[in-house]
Measured scan of single mutants.
Amino acid sequence: RERTTFTRAQLDVLEALFAKTRYPDIFMREEVALKINLPESRVQVWFKNRRAKCRQ
């Protein structure tokens, strides 16, 4: 699998959701994945990595 490159628009949507909740449930992830045209698994990993970035 190639490394996913997120567009600015995708990142804006993800960051906005992250500001609301750091742990979105499966339904929220599915919804945002459809909206920004990414698989739900990529959204899940993005959140995992974003939380890790926050902890540093």
Score class of each variant (00 low, 15 high):
28 M>N: 04
41 S>W: 08
29 R>N: 03
32 V>Y: 00
45 V>K: 08
48 K>Y: 06
29 R>P: 00
9 A>M: 09
6 F>H: 05
21 T>H: 08
22 R>D: 12
55 R>W: 10
17 L>E: 05
45 V>C: 12
41 S>H: 12
39 P>G: 02
21 T>Q: 08
46 W>V: 01
39 P>Y: 02
15 E>R: 02
54 C>T: 13
12 D>R: 08
18 F>T: 00
19 A>C: 07
55 R>M: 11
54 C>L: 14
2 E>F: 05
25 D>V: 01
23 Y>A: 03
32 V>G: 00
21 T>K: 07
14 L>S: 01
39 P>D: 08
44 Q>H: 11
28 M>T: 08
48 K>Q: 15
11 L>W: 05
25 D>Y: 01
38 L>T: 11
16 A>M: 08
11 L>F: 04
25 D>H: 04
33 A>N: 01
28 M>L: 13
32 V>Q: 09
30 E>Y: 06
9 A>P: 09
28 M>C: 03
43 V>L: 05
47 F>V: 03
23 Y>P: 00
12 D>A: 06
33 A>Y: 04
53 K>H: 12
27 F>Y: 14
16 A>I: 04
23 Y>M: 07
25 D>L: 05
16 A>R: 09
30 E>K: 09
26 I>E: 13
41 S>E: 14
49 N>K: 09
2 E>N: 08
55 R>G: 14
40 E>F: 04
47 F>N: 01
3 R>T: 15
40 E>C: 06
43 V>M: 03
11 L>Y: 05
31 E>L: 06
20 K>S: 08
12 D>N: 09
42 R>C: 14
22 R>K: 14
15 E>W: 00
44 Q>A: 14
56 Q>V: 08
47 F>P: 00
52 A>S: 09
26 I>R: 15
35 K>Q: 13
20 K>P: 01
54 C>S: 13
53 K>V: 10
18 F>K: 02
22 R>E: 15
26 I>H: 14
6 F>K: 04
46 W>M: 01
51 R>L: 05
13 V>T: 13
33 A>P: 00
17 L>R: 02
14 L>Q: 02
40 E>H: 06
55 R>Q: 10
42 R>A: 13
50 R>G: 00
41 S>N: 05
2 E>A: 06
22 R>T: 06
16 A>C: 12
18 F>G: 01
38 L>R: 06
8 R>A: 15
6 F>S: 02
46 W>C: 00
24 P>D: 03
21 T>S: 07
24 P>Y: 02
7 T>C: 08
21 T>F: 03
49 N>T: 11
15 E>I: 03
35 K>Y: 01
17 L>C: 12
2 E>I: 05
11 L>E: 12
43 V>C: 02
48 K>W: 05
22 R>I: 10
41 S>A: 14
14 L>V: 01
48 K>M: 12
17 L>F: 06
10 Q>C: 03
2 E>H: 05
25 D>E: 02
3 R>E: 14
52 A>T: 08
33 A>H: 02
14 L>H: 06
10 Q>V: 00
10 Q>W: 05
13 V>H: 05
8 R>Y: 13
30 E>R: 13
19 A>K: 08
42 R>T: 14
56 Q>S: 08
13 V>I: 07
49 N>A: 14
13 V>C: 09
37 N>A: 11
12 D>C: 10
14 L>R: 02
14 L>T: 02
51 R>K: 00
55 R>T: 09
13 V>N: 05
46 W>H: 00
20 K>H: 06
12 D>I: 08
40 E>N: 06
10 Q>T: 04
22 R>A: 14
23 Y>H: 15
50 R>V: 02
34 L>P: 04
27 F>H: 11
49 N>F: 05
42 R>V: 14
33 A>D: 15
15 E>Q: 07
10 Q>H: 04
51 R>M: 03
26 I>P: 06
3 R>Q: 15
4 T>A: 06
7 T>R: 03
6 F>V: 11
46 W>A: 00
